[in-house]
Nucleic acid binder design. Structure first.
Lengths: 245, 245
DNA sequence: TCAAAGTCAATCATATTCATTCACAAATAT
DNA sequence: ATATTTGTGAATGAATATGATTGACTTTGA
């Protein structure tokens, strides 16, 4: 049997059944364990399936933003580590952009540089920053309910007036072929615009985001470094991964 | 069975049944107590379920409206009347400016016109508006800590790009010779700019403000109508007073 | 309050899964 | 024909998941 044929069968089976074990694939294909594993690795790196311990599962695109209040409780420890590292990168007189998102919100807790000026499109971030005594500019534009972020063309326009020296962005997915992704096209626009106006660009993301795909790509690996909680072997080749440990 | 599969089943079952015991999960999954516990811990730390003594329950998003309701109870009758009247003035397709301030915030509770577009420089107002399902644009610029209002030249600039059909402003003082006054020069700037871009202008103020003077004058009697809780004999000659009774 | 029953986290031994390496065979190139 | 590449399967030890056990902790009911 051709390798390609085998891989097609695997993808079909995984998508149909949503998950499958290595053993099942060995029986189904009449191939050895090694071959199945090799196929799975290759399919995973091409983003066609997601390899998990014991087998593989189908790639699922999560179409909706979770509500802010719901998302805020995910992975707090990892996010703190990441945020701490990110905050340490801000220097005196930096002009800092902080994107909306729960991970980026944690960064604020660890900021110390009071001679920097901060700009954000997130209402909660702006409030927190002023409360902590920092100078902050909030982007103007339409306010999105679920994430409490300012978005739309007005916001994009607002942001293009600035030139940031450093910036931090969150992401919903980090995927080998799809790059950095987010569920909302308008939030993606804001991310793109703000990144285009920024010199040093960092994506902050806990390792659960690796392999995930959301509907809209807003940047590729070459566009930013990733600050995360552990080195990820698969992605370290194509992306600039910064481990916060 | 893959660990992933098992966890999916747990999440489904918990969300469906709202709560489940460890014993039930052991039977349902055919897994050991240890494994079930481990899965629960992992799912809990990822925020997908909530671990409780004896099992797990579904994550429920609790509405944090308590404070709003509480405030509404404590809210003086006069302000309620004023706000109600102000809100009733908004018509279909209006382009509405709502200034920062506690009195103006109450207006939002009585707004019904969903075909209007709202613009504000107050973070709290913007949040409330989106939460109530209105389209809202938040002015961009420097965020003032104490009042959480967006101020400064950037904000003023932002506002000059719009032409409002109706607008509502608060005030700290209403005085025969000093006109409408407020304590902060920068907030006064924003008030002036926004009023200059607005066709129908209303000051909302309870009657205690009459006779008071704050450091900065931002408008005169000819510039706006006053919505208040009673007709004031002295001022009715020189100002356009609207009684909310 | 107490004791009994139930529940929990930590630990350990076992079983499974994994990536790496090597060996071999078939396909391809020189 | 010979060398090189490519695909495959087997073997290895390392990594990971699992299940049983333990003693500590929590709840329950008297």
């Amino acid at each position: 049997m051709l390798a390609e044929e085998r891989c097609d069968k695997i993808v079909s089976l995984v998508n149909e059944r949503k998950s499958v074990t290595v053993q099942e694939l060995m029986d189904y294909l009449g191939a050895s364990e090694s071959t199945v594993r090799r196929d799975l690795s290759s399919l995973d790196s091409r983003g066609e399936i997601v390899k998990v311990y014991g087998g593989a599962v189908a790639v699922t695109v999560k179409p909706h933003d979770d509500d802010v209040r719901q998302r805020r409780i995910l992975f707090p420890e990892e996010k703190k580590l990441i945020s701490k590292h990110a905050a340490s990168l801000v220097q005196k007189d930096d002009f800092v952009y902080i994107d909306a998102g729960t991970t980026t919100e944690y960064i604020i807790d660890y900021l110390t540089e009071r001679d920097a000026v901060y700009v954000t499109n997130a209402v909660s971030h702006a409030k927190k920053l002023t409360q902590n005594g920092f100078t902050v500019y909030l982007a103007g534009g339409r306010l999105k309910q679920s994430t409490e972020a300012v978005i739309g063309s007005t916001a994009a326009n607002f942001i293009t007036r600035y030139n940031f020296t450093i910036g931090f962005w969150g992401t919903n997915g980090i995927h080998r072929t799809m790059g950095f992704t987010t569920p909302d096209p308008e939030e993606a626009d804001i991310k793109r615009v703000s990144m285009s106006r920024c010199k040093r660009r960092f994506i902050v993301a806990d390792s659960s985001k690796f392999g995930a795909v959301s509907p809209v790509t807003f940047a590729d690996f070459k566009d930013a470094s990733v600050i995360t909680d552990k080195k990820d072997g698969i992605y370290s080749e194509c992306a600039n991964i910064i481990s916060a440990n």
